[in-house]
Amino acid sequence: MFRDCTHPLTPATTVYPGDPTFERTPHATHDEDGYCVTRLELGTHSGTHVDAPSHTEPDGRTLDSFPVETFAFDALRIDVRDKAPREPIERADLPDPTDDELLVFHTGWDDHWGTDAYFDHPYLTADAAAWCADRDYHVAIDALNVDPTPTENARDDEPDGVPAHHELLGADHLIVENLTNLDGLPRRFRLSAFPLAVEDADGAPIRAVAEFWGEENVARRTDEPTD
């Protein structure tokens, strides 16, 4: 079974404050040119996307330096839907180590997509991110950012900057952000997150697709129930 976990790119797509918005304009039309071409303008971190280490690390690798098979992950979904706005995801929220490749933090924040509330998402502490990196996990989340996003609701005890990004990207791991449609997925699944083939990219939009084997087969494959 396959499930699309991608937010469509539209003019209303939520972006990190200050990032380029997504725009599409006609370049050629059937009426005037006999064919249709659309001009797209967007940032490398628009919509559902993957961050390369070069996003925050001056000497970090770009996406095109990773083998294409890197972007097909054995994923483990971590249910943190009980987290409140701007509440940290801490080391204590993480599972015992497994042989999976990607930890997918399921916050449920995709329900707020397109609203101001989307910016006040839960986030990973630097300690939690370092634990993931030390155990060779890439990280994904169904929210705008693995670090807190600046808003007027920021708390005094929140970290400055992007420490979770530094812990993960600085250790040559990838970050997938703005996933959606995680409800009902089994705890373990495959996630394909292939980026656009942009030269020297610090990040790129992806088509994120979860593959799983049906509720009747998941328990046999993973010995764990769905929720």
Rank of each mutant, 00 (worst) to 15 (best):
I89Q: 05
A126E: 15
C132W: 03
D116R: 08
R135Q: 11
A133R: 14
D93S: 15
D147Q: 06
H106A: 05
W131G: 03
A128S: 13
R135A: 01
V146A: 08
D160S: 09
W131T: 11
L124I: 03
L124S: 10
L144Q: 14
L94V: 02
A92E: 14
L102R: 13
D157E: 15
P148H: 00
N153Q: 04
D99L: 12
L103P: 04
F105S: 07
A164E: 07
T98L: 03
P122N: 07
N153T: 00
A143I: 03
D96S: 03
A143P: 02
I141T: 08
L102A: 11
I89E: 00
T125V: 14
D93T: 11
I141M: 15
F105Y: 10
D127Q: 14
E158G: 12
A143D: 03
T125P: 07
D100C: 12
H121Q: 14
T107S: 05
L144D: 10
L124G: 01
D156L: 09
W131M: 06
D136T: 04
A84T: 06
A154G: 13
A128W: 06
T151V: 00
V146K: 07
V139S: 08
L94F: 14
D147K: 13
D116V: 01
D134H: 15
H121L: 15
D99G: 10
G114M: 11
L144M: 15
E87T: 10
F105V: 09
E87F: 08
L124T: 01
T149A: 04
D142R: 06
T107H: 04
E101D: 14
A126H: 03
A129G: 15
L94R: 02
G114V: 04
A164P: 08
A126Y: 04
T98Y: 04
A84F: 13
E90A: 14
L144R: 12
E87S: 12
L102C: 11
E152P: 00
H121C: 09
A133Y: 10
D116K: 04
F105D: 10
P97E: 07
T151F: 00
A126F: 00
W131A: 11
T125G: 07
P95S: 07
L144H: 09
D134K: 15
E90C: 13
P148L: 12
N153V: 00
P148I: 01
N153Y: 02
H138Q: 02
W109T: 08
